[in-house]
Design a protein around this nucleic acid. Structure first.
Lengths: 140, 140
DNA sequence: ATATAAATCGAAACCATTTCGATTTAGGAT
DNA sequence: ATCCTAAATCGAAATGGTTTCGATTTATAT
C-alpha cells in the first residue's frame, strides 16, 4: 500500500497531514517490524530534533484510530505498533521473535471455535484475538 | 481442582506453603474471574492487615511460574491473573467482558494455521495465543 | 528447639505513559 | 498571498502500576 493512500485515509478521518504524521507513516512503511513509541521517537529525532514524546504517543494513537496502525500485544505489556496492511479484511498476525517483523495472516478458522464455545459453554462470542509467534523466513 | 492439589503443586516446585500463598490460591479458586494485583491485595487485607503490595506481586508471579495461575492479556496492558484449571492440556480462554469470568476452551484448531503460515509465509511457527471475548452464560 | 534459606515488609525508585496549559501550524476562507 | 481558527505540537510535570532492595520475620527440615 502506498504512502499516499494512508495519507488520504488520514484526511478522510478528519486529521490534518502534518510532516510528523507523514514521517511516522513512512517509517512504518519501510519497516515491516513493530516499534515502540520510544523507538519511533529516536528514528524521528534525526529529521525533527526536539520532537516531543507526547506528540509521538498521540500520533501513534491517532494513526491507530484511523486504521493505519495496529497495536501489537507483547509480553512486556508495553505499547507497540505496526502498519496495518490489510485494513479491509479480518486477519491475524504472525510476529517474528527475532526481527519483530509482522506478517498478515489472511486466514481465520474461528467459526469452529465459535460453534464449540456456544455449544459447550453457552456463551455469546463477540471477539477474538490471535497472535502467532515464531521465526520469519529470513530469521529461521 | 482442589486446593490441596495446588498446594502440592507449589511444594513440588520448591515453594513453601505460606498462609498468604494459600489465601491467594483460595481466593482464585472460589472466583472464576481474573483479578488484578490491587484487587487481590484488597481481598486479602481483611485477613492479613498490612500485607505488602510487593508480596502480592511476587506471589502472583510465583504462582504463575508454578503453573497455578495464568496471565490474562488485557487492553489496558495491566497485570491480570486467573486460575489455571487445565494445567496439563493445551487450551485457550474465553473471557466475559462483563463479569470477567474466565472459561477454559478445550479446543485448538491451530494445525490449519500452522500449515497455512508455513506454506504461504515460509515462517517457522513456534507459539500462538488466542483469547476469546464475549458474554458468559450468566451475563448474556 | 534450632538453624537457615525462603518469604515478607515497606518505603523508595522506576519508568512508560498521560495530562494540560501555552505556543505553533495546517489548510480552508477571503 | 494573507488571514483565521481549530487542530497539532511542545514540554514539563504528574501519574500510577510495577519493581527493587536491605532489613526483618517465618516455614520447615534436622
Amino acid at each position: 500500500m502506498k504512502i499516499e493512500l494512508y495519507l488520504q485515509q488520514l484526511k478522510e478521518q478528519g486529521f490534518k497531514i502534518t510532516p510528523k504524521r507523514k514521517a511516522i507513516i513512512e517509517l512504518f512503511s519501510k519497516k515491516k517490524s513493530y516499534l515502540s513509541p520510544q523507538e519511533v521517537l529516536e528514528k524521528l529525532t534525526n529529521n525533527f530534533p526536539g520532537i516531543s514524546v507526547s506528540t509521538v504517543y498521540r500520533i501513534l494513537e491517532e494513526l491507530q484510530d484511523a486504521g493505519i496502525l495496529v497495536k501489537i500485544g507483547h509480553e512486556d505489556r508495553q505499547l507497540y505498533y505496526s502498519l496495518c496492511r490489510m485494513p479491509d479484511q479480518h486477519h491475524h498476525h504472525f510476529i517474528c521473535r527475532k526481527c519483530r517483523r509482522v506478517e498478515e495472516v489472511d486466514l481465520c478458522n474461528f467459526k469452529e471455535f465459535e460453534r464449540f464455545i456456544s455449544k459447550n459453554l453457552d456463551c455469546k462470542v463477540e471477539n477474538h484475538s490471535v497472535q502467532i509467534g515464531g521465526l520469519c523466513s529470513r530469521c529461521k
